[in-house]
Nucleic acid binder design. Structure first.
Lengths: 195, 195
DNA sequence: ACCTGAACACCGTTCAAGT
DNA sequence: ACCTGAACACCGTTCAAGT
């Protein structure tokens, strides 16, 4: 309760919190500013004092997501050796996609990121890439930057592809007796972080 | 010109063609039925004689995409040995994502596919998976179905992840002097279709 | 500075009515 | 059978006006 305006307090934060609920519940495509305003008991035009557009609000939401993903990476950094730190980070990526599927989708809505990049916004997405690359580099002592980058692009593709497919539930009907979700995950983790 | 109705002909096909243009130009999120109707010089409600909803039209559009992808796979089938047939199919997947990015995005809008699956629609997406798995199996003579499926899920993740990242233009700023787009592509193709 | 109210230009969808 | 016209319930966004 910092500077409660005459109506009901810090509308900005309230809107962002509401937006995050709506996002998790229904996905970014069904998030409406008017609905947010209604829920916050405020006029339909009030959000425009705090966000220049619906898209701007979505960008800030995505930023929250990248921050949480960054935190998950940081938590993965406590593993003992480089190899398992990388593996833990990859697992964190999967977990994130599984636990917050709608946020994950929002974060990789690239048209949004592109437009936001111009306004200096979501370079946190790039940080996320660099963090992972740092962890990978630590497992490749003596490798040239080019070799690291090359392998990073493979890792990133594999990781992202698997996360997308898992999060979308496309993998479920492809499992076999003797090939469970855990097996698939371990296999992909091994190929992503392994030799 | 099959059964030209009293107004101007087969509205259904006209709408689908217009929709495909709009899709390529602006993406599925900016495709409006009303706009389509306007462009076809027809009332806003007319499309509903041919499509039960906007989503139904989008589904049919996605189906066209899967058919084209299937044709591209078929063309890849002419390569001499199993190994290069698989590789050609993977390349076809990348090419498709690059040449028709908006269609590619539409095809993997999974909420759509899920809802459509209930109405027996897009099992063509599954066919696409199975085609690729068939090509992979041919490169693994004597392998158990489980081993094939397991490797297929890795291949599919890598392929899909790379296609998504390429199509979104996220790879461009990650290239280095001496590491061009072609190199990245070849590397990923080798890992996807190779041993 | 922050919010309201009314308005503008859009949507998807429905439904009675026309031909 | 196929289309129109008008309507309903929504949108994002703008802008003058209030406090």
């Amino acid at each position: 309760m910092k500077s409660p305006s005459y109506h009901h307090g810090n509308l900005r934060a309230v809107l962002l919190d509401l937006a995050e609920q709506r996002l998790a519940a229904q996905g970014h495509e069904n998030l409406s500013l008017r609905d947010l305003a209604l829920a916050a008991k405020v006029a339909a035009s009030a959000p425009y004092r705090h966000f220049s557009s619906r898209e701007a609000l979505l960008c800030e939401l995505a930023q929250r997501g990248f921050e949480r993903l960054g935190a998950a990476y940081a938590a993965a950094g406590v593993a003992p050796d480089p190899q398992s730190r990388l593996r833990a980070a990859c697992r964190a990526y999967f977990d994130f996609a599984a636990r917050e599927p709608q946020m994950f989708r929002l974060m990789f809505m690239t048209d949004l990121v592109m437009r936001a990049n111009k306004t200096q916004n979501l370079r946190i997405g790039i940080d996320s890439f660099e963090t992972l690359e740092g962890l990978l580099r630590a497992t490749m002592p003596g490798a040239t930057p080019l070799a690291v980058r090359s392998r990073m692009l493979v890792l990133w593709s594999l990781l992202h592809g698997a996360a997308v497919l898992l999060q979308e539930g496309q993998v479920d009907h492809l499992l076999l007796p003797g090939l469970g979700l855990a097996d698939v995950l371990e296999d992909i983790l091994a190929r992503a972080s392994g030799s």
